[in-house]
Amino acid sequence: MREAGPRVTSEQYDSWCAAKCAGIEIVDGTVLVRPVASKRHNRLARLLANALDAAGGSEWNADTDFDVRLQDVPLNNRRPDVVVYRAETIDESPTRPADVLLLAEVVSPGSETTDRVVKLDQYATAGIPFYWRIEQAVGVVPIVHTYVLDPASRCYRVGEVFTGLVKATAPYPVEIDLSSL
């Protein structure tokens, strides 16, 4: 078995330019290259972010493609497809779990196990209150699986499942029509 190279620390990562950080995540100090997303994937993420942002009012912002620092040692830095975070922290970097309300991942070929199992566990362990997983395939209406954190166990319990039209009441009321995608 080959030994892994040196681990990336939070200090090292924070010194890197934005271009070097784009398209990667850090898990247990190891750099992981993220698969290139399809146009369908990006559109789904953008539609979700736009609807969640509009419904979040002045307290919550929603956006795509930026880092969430799950922990410093070993460094765990994820770049979820959609992040709902406290509006007052817009200029703070990195974004920390205490300022995140919801993370959403759009499952694509190459990210199935990571989005369905690994991130579900990591986000719960970090204390993120809500996780949404969006299953998508060409010619099929997207399915949104929602999860709610049980704070005592730091595990998610299964929430509602939406096909096409999302009419969620948690984390706040939002309606998103994904059936036309």
Rank of each mutant, 00 (worst) to 15 (best):
Q136R: 11
V140T: 07
V144D: 14
P142A: 13
Y131M: 08
D115K: 02
T146H: 09
R154Q: 08
E92C: 10
L75F: 02
D150W: 11
E88N: 12
T113D: 10
E88C: 10
L102N: 04
R69T: 02
D67R: 01
R79T: 05
T125F: 07
P94T: 03
G139S: 04
Q122K: 04
V141N: 06
T114P: 00
N76E: 00
T125Y: 06
T125D: 05
R86N: 13
D67L: 00
V117Y: 15
V140P: 04
E135P: 03
G127Y: 09
T95C: 06
T89Y: 09
A137N: 11
A124G: 03
Q122R: 14
R157W: 09
R79C: 03
V100W: 04
Y147K: 08
E105I: 02
I134D: 02
Y123E: 02
V141T: 10
I90R: 09
R96T: 13
F66A: 04
R154T: 05
I134W: 12
V140A: 08
I143N: 09
V158R: 11
L102M: 11
V138I: 07
A104S: 15
I90S: 07
E88T: 09
N77S: 14
A124H: 06
I143S: 15
V141Q: 09
D150F: 13
G127Q: 06
V141A: 13
F130G: 06
D65H: 14
P97Y: 13
F130P: 07
Q136H: 12
D150S: 13
R86D: 06
T125I: 10
I143K: 08
E92P: 02
V140G: 14
E112P: 01
D99Q: 15
L103A: 04
T125L: 10
T113C: 05
D67E: 09
G127V: 05
V148G: 04
V144I: 14
L120T: 12
P151M: 08
